[in-house]
Design a protein around this nucleic acid. Structure first.
Lengths: 248, 248
DNA sequence: TTACTATACTTGTATATACGGGTATGGTAC
DNA sequence: GTACCATACCCGTATATACAAGTATAGTAA
């Protein structure tokens, strides 16, 4: 698809230019207000046409990274601190970071042909073999998350052999396949009977459901993460920095 | 700037095409999964080159309105409100980016001594002067967000003089003080009577509440953003259902 | 000095063209 | 019927080119 002569181009030219700019901004070399090279300069530097450089600049402008003024130039936009929305973080690591004890109970782990709705979610034909796991994560013995996950069996054939009381499904998947994309849908729901029982919560209280789908090219996994209680915090003053490797 | 011969073009060609598509979707003529005309068909219909039609389609895809599959076609994406959760910049801009009309209704804007709970949130002594604003954001005249905001009056003394039907509080604050940190807490709640009335929603359905606090050194503002409906998507993509191989 | 103008940039948009690769379909050979 | 393949689409990317319009600056004329 990318017809770059010579070496194989893993990503499009305009993506390389975007990466180049974002890298400089991230490293702090180009600060807010810095004037970035013009379309033509980038085109010359990367040996592409101006249209290609223009696309990179335009998309970064739409994304709020750059600001352009016709006739003047392109500048690094004001940096808005935004919490990494939903880091693919490990609930086990997070709990241990709080100095608490993590444990998990596996309620089921099966292989079966994909039901119709799950097939749609995973973008596979119905009846394709998939894995289905249901487990509860505990913090100091208290239920903190119900994880109901479906996995494309063809992509992760050994999923069903794992001991998910020792390694979380998310951690296992992350170390096995490189994630390319993540989707989060947050939903406010009233928990059903099974959920209330597994999480030991009362009826009548709304719950947060985070529906997370992860891609690695094709869709690897689709998970429903239900939290008892009803709050989910991202960022903020009291959250310690979590920037460590993916263990457990 | 737009060199369309004949009559003066008020907006670029690709904008016209975007508007054309968004209009059909908004009017319900093209529902989720509907296959929209291809690049070439649109190019012929509007007498433009495919690149121009392609830009319109690509931008609507980036905006989440359409979904494209190489080799197959372009489809109307599932409509999930996906903006206001973490207003990166401006809810007004985002709504306008979707080709819709933004408006806002200011329900109240007062200065008063901080109540006890608000003082805690803003980390100021009780009775400190604060501003309190309540407004509703509308997309095409439909209520999409209730914003209940408290602002540290000492840090933004002119807050109360603004016309928030013209500039959103968030945009005003952002251009005035450099943000250093943001906290988001997502909460599933049952809306109270006032909220249901302002957002014109029915009882019995859980809502998502985003509690957003912003720092600029000290805490500048604390806002509750309540969304009708209960689903919000970040990232990911809508993939239309495709024909399975003829295996029945 | 002041005012104007030519010039050399910048970004914004639009076109015609090209090729790569994915997907569905219809036809053909088995 | 089944398996294969040619074909005609689709989208993704890239290029060279062109003109419109905004902006800054150097140079010139008043």
């Amino acid at each position: 698809m990318v017809q770059r002569n010579g070496e194989i181009a893993l990503q499009p030219q305009y993506q390389k230019i975007k990466q180049y700019i974002v890298d400089h901004v991230d490293r702090g070399e180009w600060e807010t207000g810095y004037r970035v090279p013009s379309d033509n300069e980038l085109a010359a530097q990367f040996s592409v046409s101006r249209m290609t450089a223009n696309r990179a600049m335009r998309e970064l402008t739409d994304a709020g990274v750059l600001a352009r003024i016709a006739g003047v130039g392109t500048f690094v936009a004001e940096h808005i601190p935004q919490t990494p929305l939903f880091e693919i973080q490990n609930i086990a690591v997070e709990i241990e970071n709080r100095g608490h004890q993590y444990s998990a109970v596996v309620h089921s782990l099966d292989q079966l042909p994909a039901p119709r709705d799950i097939a749609l979610e995973l973008e596979v034909p119905p009846q394709t073999p998939v894995f289905h796991s249901v487990l509860v994560h505990l913090e100091n013995g208290v239920q903190v998350q119900l994880e109901d996950r479906w996995v494309n069996a063809a992509l992760v054939p050994d999923y069903i052999k794992q001991d998910f009381s020792r390694i979380t499904p998310n951690a296992y998947l992350m170390e096995l396949v490189p994630l390319t994309e993540v989707e989060h849908v947050i939903e406010a729901v009233m928990p059903d009977a099974r959920t209330r029982k597994l999480l030991k919560i009362d009826a009548g209280q709304p719950c947060l459901l985070v529906h997370r789908r992860t891609w690695s090219g094709p869709i690897v996994s689709s998970a429903r993460l239900i939290h008892p209680g009803n709050r989910y915090r991202m960022g903020g003053r009291f959250v310690p920095e979590r920037r460590q490797s993916s263990k457990v």
